[in-house]
């Protein structure tokens, strides 16, 4: 019965129409799109949801203009260390956080506008051998970093103007933490996934490591994207970039797993598998917002799933001008930011 319940159901005739192209922005000076995100930006008393695009050597801020067009507001040049990712900071305005490095993150910086001296600036937040970073509520950044001997899990609080206010340390697990997610429904809880496939839970207020729970050997390199607590259970949305195909659950890209934090026992709630014809290696990278997941598949297409239904609900085939390279959800609305390697970003209403 369980196997039957967990068998993924795919909609017949995946529809591209459920994604409607709203607008397109093209950075003519960029040729190496690395990441895309959205940020609230206020200028001259007008607060707007802007788009941030990153290539290896610069990060650009785009504001909406009339008729679904976008205008570049500013470009920060970041120097010799390449940008690896944009780190969204929830509930902030006029702050963009980026991670820079070569193979791993070596530096975290803030990009901002200073009204004091009417300048766009950048400031250093942290350096080190950083494995994972996440922006969490109340303008905080949590990160895991390693020295030869030990791992550190730190929180940095930022002021409204982007200054680092104070720091806090969380008790590190033995294994390297590769991803974090805040727990919706429990104010001070944070979870992380580790290099040996465990889920760890912290108390953000006290820094305590509360529990370590195993995800299962069938899903190596699981990454947590989202977590929420309901009815005494901890539900975690995991992605499985390297999961193997199995008869019972197909080729799962994302899973919702229910953990009982008291006993560390778990059960799979829903599998979201690759659409038909996309077997084998799965996806390059993806993003989760609420119950929606999006990922770039190795075929160059973008797939969108409803995680609660376990269904792939939309498929964007590779664009004739080039394969998709990035898939991100905007912070508001049901808007998908789909990026191509040449720096073109398409905004789709979902």
């Amino acid at each position: 019965d369980v196997a039957e319940q967990l068998t993924p159901v795919l909609l017949d005739g995946l529809r591209e129409e459920s994604l409607q192209l709203v607008s397109k922005l093209k950075d003519s000076s960029s040729s190496c799109a690395v990441d895309v995100s959205t940020v609230w930006w206020e200028a001259a008393g007008c607060r707007e949801l802007c788009v941030v695009t990153a290539c290896e050597s610069s990060v650009s801020l785009w504001k909406p203009l009339a008729s679904d067009h976008w205008g570049k507001v500013y470009t920060w040049q970041v120097g010799e260390i390449p940008v690896i990712q944009i780190v969204p900071l929830p509930d902030t305005c006029n702050l963009v956080c980026i991670a820079l490095g070569d193979l791993e993150i070596g530096e975290i910086r803030l990009l901002l506008y200073s009204s004091e001296n009417d300048l766009f600036k950048q400031s250093l937040v942290k350096t080190g051998n950083i494995k994972a970073v996440l922006g969490i509520k109340d303008r905080r950044l949590v990160s895991s970093s390693r020295t030869v001997q030990e791992q550190q899990v730190d929180i940095v609080s930022l002021s409204e103007t982007g200054r680092c206010k104070d720091g806090q340390t969380l008790m590190p697990p033995e294994e390297t933490v590769l991803a974090f997610a805040e727990v919706e429904g429990v104010r001070d809880a944070l979870v992380g996934t580790t290099a040996v496939n465990s889920i760890v839970i912290w108390n953000l207020k006290t820094g305590q490591l509360l529990k370590k729970m195993h995800v299962g050997y069938s899903y190596p390199a699981s990454i947590c994207h989202r977590a929420y607590s309901d009815s005494g259970l901890l539900f975690v949305v995991l992605s499985h970039p390297h999961a193997k195909e199995s008869e019972s659950c197909g080729n799962p890209a994302f899973r919702v797993v229910a953990f009982n934090p008291k006993t560390a026992r778990s059960t799979g709630v829903m599998f979201s598998s690759l659409p038909p014809g996309h077997a084998g290696r799965q996806y390059l990278e993806g993003d989760v917002k609420d119950a929606s997941a999006a990922a770039v598949l190795t075929s160059g297409a973008i797939a969108v799933w409803d995680l609660l239904l376990g269904q792939c609900t939309a498929l964007l085939p590779p664009d004739p001008e080039g394969s998709w390279a990035l898939a991100r959800w905007a912070t508001t609305n049901a808007c998908l930011l789909a990026g191509q390697q040449d720096g073109t970003v398409c905004l789709y209403q979902y």
Partner: peptide
């Protein structure tokens, strides 16, 4: 999910684990 699969469930799991865990 039933209690038999996952063991006894507590709505206050976060507070209880925080009280049990080393400071």
């Amino acid at each position: 999910c039933s209690e038999s699969d996952l063991g006894p469930i507590s709505l206050n799991w976060f507070e209880e684990l925080s009280a049990e865990a080393p400071p």
